[in-house]
Design a protein around this nucleic acid. Structure first.
Lengths: 231, 231
DNA sequence: GCCGTTACTTACAATTTTGTAAGCTACTTT
DNA sequence: AAAGTAGCTTACAAAATTGTAAGTAACGGC
């Protein structure tokens, strides 16, 4: 880093390769900036999910994306910039993919919400990314309330509506926030710790056990919810 | 790494410092191996908890422990060795501090178990360490069933005993394992994600909110447990 | 068809980080 | 008390990693 200015290159090497990609017709091609940025982010996220934070290395990501590592710096400015872009993309993903499908008007089908959140949190790696953010102390800037807060608010609205319909007393806001926190923690925790804990406890860690456990879990939570409603 | 043999040092520098520590009487002192190993592990864990996996750097840890970085290699062989020792220590801590206090004969006071597990998992940083292990793909070797499995088994024994006393039908093993997994995931998940989620949801992230939330949580879980028992 | 822009490359620099070599001296053992 | 052991240091090496400089060619606008 902080390199000192250098003399103009004397070289020589007739024509260095240009880094362009050849398509199947043999013609040279250049990807658009957006295309490459996306490939880089994709590769970076794959690395992060597979090998953890320590696996975000410019060289390897560049290799995965089929470019040279300074190209990453060209697109993102610095490693830090790449990380930030990754996080932004992750949060946006979570927001659009999870929140948009939240049942705003209908009955809050707990199993459905669970499934959706699981899908986003574990398959798309959100839980791991959040965990990594928290571990490395970067969560303050990024873990915006843009996702969890609206979800909790919709949950509260739904509870109030149902309480009114059924003529029960209205639930306190904090109660709902606790319940929402409980749900989020459960899903995030399961996405991250679930497989290891199930193995450690003596359950199989296969997809089948996972499915059965999650079914058990959503039933349990549902039971809690109805039980709360009637007390 | 992989340094090539070198010629004997020609030097000279009359008497390099010896790395010994001076106590308050001014006399030189040397710590025992165990003492230093401990100081190193302590420092390493502090770094891990504070700055995440990327913060485990020999130089900084050495500085924290008041020694030079090759001393760490002297004691642990390699960075990997240090990491392994840290993990072992963490698991042992979890085992002794959590498992030993598990109510084996008495009524399974859920709130007490919760509190104890929380204490170990969050204050002593077990949740963060496990998260890091999982993120970096090291969990297979280390996340031994030595902690979670015995705990789950005791839980099952307790359930069976109570079912017999009350003349109910015996619970299936898988049911208990699911419940145990649920508990562990909840506590680990809360230790790691809890503060961020509570903040993101609009709850305060202070100690007071945390306490109230955990009380709510243990009541909720207790309710679940009794509810299950009566159905 | 020319021309500026920009995606991308090679070559290199600066620094960090793990690891090795060799020596010094406090402590232990006999 | 002499000798060996081992905890720890300084000095160095090798490699990895992020970042910079400068140039090249694909592309888009005119």
């Amino acid at each position: 880093m902080r390199a000192v200015p250098r003399q103009p290159r004397v070289s020589s090497r007739s024509h260095p390769a240009t880094g362009t990609v050849r398509d199947r017709t043999g013609a040279r091609r250049r990807r658009s900036a957006a295309e490459t940025r996306n490939a880089i982010l994709e590769a970076a996220q794959r690395r992060l999910l597979a090998g953890g934070p320590e696996a975000i290395r410019l060289q390897e990501i560049a290799a995965d994306a089929g470019i040279s590592h300074p190209a990453i710096l060209h697109h993102f400015g610095s490693r830090e910039g790449l990380v930030e872009a990754m996080v932004m993309r992750g949060v946006t993903n979570l927001q659009t993919q999870f929140l948009e499908g939240w049942p705003s008007a209908k009955e809050p089908d707990i199993e459905g919400v669970f499934d959706r959140f699981y899908e986003v949190a574990s398959r798309r790696g959100i839980a791991r990314m959040l965990a990594w953010l928290i571990l490395s102390g970067k969560s303050n800037r990024t873990m915006t309330p843009n996702v969890f807060k609206p979800a909790a608010e919709r949950m509260h609205a739904g509870r109030i509506r149902r309480a009114q319909q059924q003529g029960r007393r209205l639930p306190a806001l904090e109660e709902t926030l606790f319940a929402a926190t409980f749900l989020f923690i459960l899903v995030l925790g399961d996405s991250l710790f679930g497989p290891s804990v199930r193995r450690a406890v003596g359950l199989g860690s296969g997809a089948d056990t996972t499915r059965r456990f999650r079914r058990w879990l959503s039933k349990t939570v549902e039971l809690l919810e109805t039980r709360r409603a009637h007390s």
